[in-house]
């Protein structure tokens, strides 16, 4: 008995030692930071970061910025930015997720050229967004003109105004967004029992119906994961705007996303802390919206989703 007790004790000590450092990292660099972020949202800071007092004015400023009536962020209308973030979300769901699933299905079925396409679809994961954005920017502004000239056509830049800019930046997000999604879906699809598929094919199922009635239910948990991540990304997706425009929010024109706004402002580190309290307050407000929305989406999808049985 003594040796068993000693062994269990050693095991416990080893366990505690093993998990302590990662847990400490989590406590300091996640939990503490979340609390500090909430605390900062209520603080008045001077330029050096000294806490001068506590206030709710940062939250008042947040609501003013949403309504376009802030004196601190005069030219920012965050409700419009939120609207654009939601548009991006729906486009990502409608086109991006659909394309991911369709492309993955093509690879899973090992159709013509699947090995080549598998490599190409993974390349956006390998190449930096900086690289892809530079090439893309050339093609949608200047390149279309150069290509049109080959056919005697005069084609002007596709990014004529802020709306067309927004549209083509969404297209970039979709174009450069393949990689991990295709990999995950393809992996999950390869786990579908062959017998189920063969039996359906004997019954004369078409490829499209097979996708809808057999494949989709099988990959539904993975689908739910991606949907939940997409909902959360309403508040974090930068749409690569910083890669394209850096901190020059003016260059973006009339459309941008919440994720870009948050990052661009945080990255504008000019040594003055006073603006960061407002940013933290904005983060708190967005988190209070994002958390129930994300959890609710997950619950809803799990409730209404198909079951394999």
């Amino acid at each position: 008995m003594n040796s068993i007790e000693r062994k269990n004790k050693n095991k416990l000590i080893f366990y505690i030692c093993g998990i302590s450092i990662p847990l400490l990292q989590f406590l300091f660099f996640y939990v503490f930071i979340v609390f500090d972020s909430i605390l900062m949202a209520f603080q008045v800071l001077d330029e050096q970061g000294t806490v001068l007092g506590f206030t709710v004015n940062n939250f008042v400023e947040v609501f003013k910025v949403f309504l376009g009536k802030s004196t601190v962020e005069k030219d920012i209308y965050l409700l419009g930015v939120l609207k654009d973030s939601i548009i991006l979300f729906f486009v990502s769901i409608l086109f991006g997720s659909t394309a991911n699933i369709l492309f993955s299905n093509y690879l899973y079925k090992k159709k013509a050229g699947h090995k080549f396409f598998q490599i190409v679809l993974f390349i956006p994961q390998i190449l930096s967004a900086v690289v892809m954005s530079r090439v893309y920017m050339y093609f949608v502004t200047q390149g279309v003109g150069d290509i049109g000239a080959l056919f005697g056509l005069k084609i002007f830049s596709l990014m004529k105004d802020s709306l067309s800019k927004f549209i083509w930046l969404i297209v970039f997000s979709l174009w450069s967004g393949f990689g991990a999604g295709v990999l995950m879906y393809t992996s999950t699809m390869s786990g579908i029992p062959v017998e189920v598929v063969e039996s359906a094919q004997l019954d004369g199922i078409t490829p499209f119906k097979e996708l809808i009635f057999i494949t989709m239910p099988m990959i539904y948990p993975t689908f739910v994961t991606f949907m939940v991540v997409n909902v959360a990304s309403i508040f974090t997706n930068q749409m690569h705007l910083y890669t394209f425009y850096g901190q020059n929010i003016d260059s973006v024109g009339g459309h941008s996303t919440l994720g870009y706004y948050l990052f661009a402002r945080a990255a504008m580190w000019d040594g003055s802390w006073d603006k960061y309290a407002y940013l933290s307050a904005l983060g708190v407000v967005l988190s209070l919206v994002a958390i129930p929305l994300t959890l609710g989406t997950k619950k809803l999808l799990e409730k209404v989703g198909p079951s394999f049985e």
Binding site: G68, Y77, K160, L163, S164, G254, H255
Partner: peptide, 18 residues
């Protein structure tokens, strides 16, 4: 004032280009 999406129009070129 806010005419162009969520931004204020700052220059005529945007307003008239399309």
């Amino acid at each position: 004032e806010f005419l162009d999406g969520n931004a204020k129009l700052k220059a005529p070129d945007v307003a008239f280009r399309n």
